[in-house]
Amino acid sequence: MTMVQWWLRHRQKLNTFIDRALFGVIDRALRFFYVSGQAVMFASQSCGLVVKRPYRFDEIIRHMEFIGNRSILIICLTGAFTGLALSYQIYLGFKLVNATNLVGPTVALGITRELGPVLTGLIVAARAGGAMAARLGTMRVSEQIDALEVMGVDARQYLVAPRIFAAFITMPLLCAVFDFIAMMGASLLCIKVLGLDEAVFWDKIQQWIEPGDINQGMLKAAVFGLTFSAICTHRGFTAKGGAKGVGEATNEGVVNSMVLIIVANYLLTNLIRVFYTVSGIKG
C-alpha cells in the first residue's frame, strides 16, 4: 500500500479525531467559563442574604469551625514541609553565589505573597470545598433543599450565604497559620541544620519583609475563599441526577476552584502591585 492510499483510507478517521480533540477542548473551555460566570452571579446574589433576617450567626460559626478549625492540622503539616523544602532549595541556589544571608527574606517573600495563600486555597478548596459541593449536592438530589423551600426557608440564605461568608473570614486566618508554620520550618532547617546565623536570618527578614507583603497574602486568601466557596456551593446547589450527579458536581467544583485559584492568583498579584505602586505602599 502506497502512502497516498494509506492516507486516503485513514484521513477520515484522522479528521474525526482532530475534530473531537479540538472541539472537546473548546467545549470544555466554554463550559468552564459558563459555569464560573454562573457561580459569580450565584455568589453575588447569595452574599447579600447574609445581612437579611433571620441572621444565621450559628450557621456561620458552625461553618467557620468546619472550614477553619478542622483544616488546621493539614495546613500545619503542609506549611511545615513547604517551608522546609523551599528554604532548602533556596539555600542550595544562593550558596552558589555566596548569598545565603538572603535565604530568610526570600523564603519569607515567597511564602507570604504566593505559596501561603495559594497552597492554603488549594488545600482548603479540596477539603472544605469538596465537602460543600457533596453536601449540598446530596441535599439537592434527596429533596432536602426542596423541603427547606417548602417550609418557607430561603435555602440560599440558610445553606449558601453562611458557607461563603465563613470561607471569606476563615481563609486569611488559615493563611496566617500556614505562613507562621512555614517560616518556623524554614528557620528550623536553616538555623539548626544548615547552620545559618540566627540573628542574620531574622534581621534580614525584618529588613526586607513589610506588613504589605503579609497583608497581600491574606487578601489573596480571602479572595480564594470566596472563589472556591462560590463555585463549590453553586455546583452542589444545582446538582441533579442522583449519586452520579453529586459526584460530578463535587469533581467539577473542586477542579474549577483549583484552576480559578491559580489564575486569580496571577491576576491578583498584578492588581495588588499596581495598587501598591499607585498608592505608594511599599511591599
Binding site: 446530596t138 434527596s142 429533596e143 432536602q144 426542596d146 423541603a147 417548602v150
Partner: peptide, 10 residues
C-alpha cells in the same frame, strides 16, 4: 409536605 423519601435533614 411529606416527600416520597421523607427528605429528612440527615
Amino acid at each position: 409536605v411529606l416527600f416520597q423519601y421523607a427528605a429528612l435533614f440527615d
